Simulated assay, not measured.
Amino acid sequence: MFNVDIFSPNVLLLDLIRGGELFDFIAEKETLSEEEAIEFQEQILKGVAYMHTRHIAHFDLKPENIMLLEKDVPHPKIKIIDFGLAQKIDDGTVYQSLCGTPQYIAPEVINYEPLGPPTDMWSIGVITYILLSGMSPFQGETDAETLTNVVAGNYEFDDRFFKETSEMAKDFIRQLLLKDPRSVPWAPPIGPRSASSLRLSAVLATRREPAYRSPPGGDRKEPGDAWLLGYHEEAGSPSPGDRYLRPACM
C-alpha cells in the first residue's frame, strides 16, 4: 500500500506493516522455539549486516523497533524501524552519544566511550535473551539499577526460564554481551571479525519448551523509551556516581 499525494512534488511511499511489534508478538505467543528464534535472528542479523556494510549503526535496536510484516503466518518476516538514533560511522571517525534505551544500551554508551557496530551487536544479544526467555537480562527496579547492571555485565541464565535452553544458545548470547566492544563479533566489512555475526545464528539449537513467561509476581513492564544519559556539570569528567537520566533523543 502506498500513499501518494498527486498535488505535491514530493511522493511518499510507505510499507504497510500489519503484524505489529516483535515485542508484542513474543508476549502474545507465549511459546517460542529456538527454531523460531533462529528465523527472527537470521533476519535481524542480515538487516544489521546490511547496515554495517554501509557503515551505518542503528543504536536503538530493541523488539519494539522490529516490526512484523504479517503476524498470523507460519514464518513472519520483519522490518527494522526507527532510525532516529542511527549514525553513519566512517573509518577513522569517533562517535559518542548518551542516547538509548536503558535495557538495551551497551556499556560504552553509559561510559560515554566511542560507539560503533559492536554497540548494535550488544543490543542483539539482549534481544536474543528476550526471545528465548521472555525476560530482560539487565532489567532492574529502576533505570539507574538497570544501567548499573549493564555496566557490570550483571546477568544470569535463571533456570526458571533457561532450564531447557541449549548451551549453544546461551553461548551465542555470551559472545554478544561482552563489556569490551573490541571482543564483540560484528558484521562486515568493519573490523576483523567480518562474518562472525551471521555464523553465530547457526549455534541456536532446537528448543521445545515455552520461551515467553511473565515475570514472577507481576505483569511485564511497558516497553522502554529512549533516554539521554547525562552528567552533573559540577562533577567535572563523567563518573558512574554522577549519572542521571532524562527523556531525550526521540
Rank of each mutant, 00 (worst) to 15 (best):
V151Q: 03
F25N: 06
A235Q: 14
A187N: 10
E21W: 05
R208L: 13
E234V: 10
G84H: 08
D120F: 06
T146L: 02
D143V: 00
P185L: 06
P102Q: 02
Y112S: 11
P188Y: 12
I173K: 10
S97E: 03
A235C: 15
A106N: 02
L115Y: 10
G134P: 02
P188C: 14
R182D: 14
F138N: 00
Y95H: 14
Y155H: 04
D15R: 12
I66G: 02
A86N: 07
V126P: 01
F40N: 09
L85N: 02
I26M: 00
K46C: 14
A106L: 05
I89T: 11
R199C: 12
Y212P: 13
M51H: 07
S97L: 05
P188M: 10
T146A: 04
S201H: 11
F162K: 05
A211S: 10
M121F: 09
L229P: 01
G217K: 07
R207E: 15
E164Y: 14
I130Q: 09
T119F: 06
I80S: 04
H232P: 11
V184A: 11
I56V: 01
P188G: 10
R199F: 15
N10I: 13
A27E: 08
G134D: 06
W227T: 10
E234T: 09
E209A: 15
C99R: 05
T128E: 03
E28I: 13
L198R: 12
V73G: 01
G92N: 06
I89M: 11
L204F: 05
E113N: 10
L204S: 03
P117T: 09
P63C: 01
E64P: 01
I78E: 07
K170S: 06
E42G: 03
P223R: 06
T146E: 04
R193N: 13
D15F: 13
I66C: 00
F157N: 05
I110T: 01
M168D: 15
Y212M: 12
L68Q: 08
Y50W: 09
V109I: 03
Q96V: 12
Q43P: 03
I44N: 04
D171K: 07
Q43V: 02
G241I: 08
V48Q: 03
V48C: 01
I66V: 05
Y155M: 04
V94T: 14
E36L: 11
R243S: 00
G100C: 06
T31I: 12
A226T: 12
I80H: 08
E113W: 01
P118V: 07
R220D: 08
R54H: 00
R174K: 11
L204D: 04
L16I: 09
L245H: 08
S196L: 15
D225Y: 13
I44A: 01
P192R: 15
E156T: 13
